[in-house]
Design a protein around this nucleic acid. Structure first.
Lengths: 398, 398
DNA sequence: GATACTTTTTAAATTTTTTTAAAAAGTATT
DNA sequence: AATACTTTTTAAAAAAATTTAAAAAGTATC
């Protein structure tokens, strides 16, 4: 039998109000009531509670719109702190943010190879614990740890099927016990989408597709205003759809995958091959570098006008555009956001992507879909990890 | 300002209970309370009201599962009637169903070409009015008319951008005024999906993709248990995604669309071309027939073992499978249902579709997705249209 | 510059919903 | 066969949420 205690029920709305203040700026009681579709007396009570407990502060009276001036409230930045962890195949970034998503301590980066690395999980936990300890922030003030990571992740089971094996144990709980804080994990691309829909280029929109341009190509989907993960948590596998019959062999074993043709890693490989063939470019030095740095070097070069780099990215963009045409046909999103590591060459990618979409999409569909470059850029995954913590936060249940 | 009247609020739950009985078989008060997550006294009141008003009837006591025997209730079949209209590009079917979705009057078919036919809307209304009048059912007992139709449809605006122009007026309201009944319209493939998720092969499932195999190839999407239509109502345009670089020219102006390669119309054209080239087949006579009949003839022949027909369908199936591989990568559905007119050759299509999905899908994704053939078959769109009426029905607001 | 009409907030009254308690009608077990 | 424990339903009590009314503090307009 399910037992709901008194506080359970009451705190439901208060938590929602708290989160509403986290996701929004200054708000009056009337506005919150309107947004949450709850009566004013009820919302007023919750806000009063939050003010007493120090989560929310009065911000004074705002302009009247024809009546009594509304008393505005906003979230109290230092009421809680959020630990955000953003991983990719090769590295980890850790940050600690306040409730305005401002970094309290500098974000730190560590090398951490996930593939075939039995030590990865142990190292990850060590880095996180060290970082939190060094920050000087008391654990009681930390709402939790949000972690974005690559791989096939089952949220409800708390398992990453691809990386970071915790011996079959619930990965989320495992890290939670090792850090003594509430932990929430999700796929990196999903968190990037969450960030863009909450604080980025697609704020408050309901149907949003976010492309995570990185060493691979990920997709985070927002459907009906919420993260969509599919029946088993594997939705958004855009990078392995069959795009062409031939083409480069992909790490997944198939041919013609988008990832094998247009990811930063694929672009880097093409750059190295091209230079070896004698292409003129400021990129000559990258031959010696490992692929990761090569990717960054290509993006730098392209932003500095290097023709060869721009050509390579345009090529990749066109292929991405073809995939986005398919995605648009199926999902009819309001906005597609180019985000992640590659967002900083978003402007260069935009034109070839749009061109491909124009060619491969039914006119009615392209004309309704807005293509945008992220402003959050490389920070998106960290922001998304912070958002994840806050979305799951429970005031009473600490 | 939004004003909620007393009856508005109270009837909210009662309507939900009524719909729950429509979508389910026999239920006890305790079960409804559980499903709807509302307290038993509240549900009991609603059920009592529905019994008094003749929407629901007691069905006696069921077996006890260890306590007092539950008093079961069920929907009263003749409490209301639903008019369902299923259209495709060339014809209209009209049916009248009771609340058990049993036909009360025979379903009738009419020829009705939608493309470039200014008279289509007028004819449609005439057919509907005639059918209802002939049925002998009083309009007060009819909950409404549900209409499934091809084309780009905006539900909220009530407009079909492709067919049945009502002079820019709200098509839904226009037909409503002309028939003097509540009217609800939706895309044919969406209604087929609705039918499969409510009464068909994917009953009560949350992530379902339904393929509408007909003269074209449509897709109806169920996401999180509800019909998904995309931001502008155009989601599910699977049939025009770029599948191959070359291939037949599609009516949409592009090349390599699934529809131009694998729809029944495309198969029929290939059959005619093949027979002209001298292929041996029981299909020889179809050369003289218009394409629509040819499509039916091919399906009949295939079901009777005709090798040429089976080869043609297998070819089409393989291409459909490739598209479903893409769809599965993006959506990670629990079930894909092959439905619509072509469902009766579903068994023949199943193998090549599965084969293509195995080839083009990441193993983890295919192995989690169940591929099924509809049992509703050609009736799916009619059932979906009836469901649409019931989903929108308001007891008080007639 | 008073009057009429806003919007926001607070307080009181009502309504709605849920919880608790009790009754009815079973099953399982000693 | 009697006792203990179920589940379902009905009735009464308690709690929660909304509506209504009123107060506070504005804007617009004649």
């Amino acid at each position: 039998m399910e037992i709901k205690t008194k506080t359970d029920r009451q705190s439901g709305l208060t938590d929602k109000v708290l989160k509403h203040f986290y996701f929004n700026d200054e708000l009056s009681c009337a506005e919150v009531s309107e947004h949450l579709d709850k009566s004013i007396p009820l919302v007023a009570k919750s806000i009063a509670e939050l003010v007493v407990e120090g989560f929310v502060v009065e911000q004074g009276y705002a302009q009247s719109s024809g009546g009594r001036r509304p008393l505005k409230y906003s979230i109290k930045a230092d009421a809680l702190y959020l630990v955000a962890v953003a991983m990719d195949q090769l590295s980890v970034r850790i940050g600690l943010f306040d409730l305005l998503n401002k970094p309290v301590v500098d974000v730190q980066s560590f090398e951490l190879k996930l593939l075939n690395n039995d030590e990865a999980l142990k190292m990850l936990i060590k880095y996180i614990n060290k970082y939190i300890a060094a920050s000087g922030i008391a654990k009681e003030k930390i709402a939790g740890i949000g972690i974005g990571m690559p791989g096939f992740i089952n949220i409800s089971e708390g398992i990453n099927y691809t990386y970071l094996d915790a011996g079959g144990q619930n990965l989320r709980e495992y890290i939670g016990e090792a850090t003594d804080l509430p932990v929430f994990i999700d796929n990196d691309s999903s968190l990037i989408a969450l960030a863009e829909q909450r604080f980025g280029a697609a704020k408050a929109q309901k149907e949003v597709m976010v492309i995570n341009l990185g060493w691979g190509i990920g997709l985070g989907m927002i459907i009906n205003g919420k993260l969509f993960r599919g029946h088993d948590g594997f939705a958004g596998e855009l990078s392995h759809i069959p795009l062409s019959e031939d083409g480069a062999l992909c790490s997944c074993g198939k041919q013609g995958c988008l990832e094998a043709e247009a990811s930063m890693l694929a672009v880097a490989e093409k750059a190295i091959a091209g230079i070896k063939e004698g292409k003129i470019s400021s990129l000559k030095h990258i031959i010696e570098d490992p692929n990761k740095l090569a990717g960054d070097a290509i993006m730098d070069a392209a932003n500095n006008g290097d023709h060869f780099a721009i050509d390579l990215l345009s090529d990749a963009g066109y292929k991405i555009g073809k995939a986005l045409a398919i995605l648009t046909h199926i999902m009819n999103p309001q906005t597609i956001v180019l985000s992640g590591r590659g967002a900083r060459v978003g402007k260069i990618l935009l034109a070839p992507i749009q061109q491909a979409m124009n060619k491969y999409c039914i006119p009615r569909l392209v004309s309704n879909t807005r293509l945008k470059v992220s402003e959050l850029g490389f920070d998106a995954e960290l922001v998304g990890a912070a958002v994840l913590v806050m979305e799951n936060y429970n005031k009473e249940k600490v």
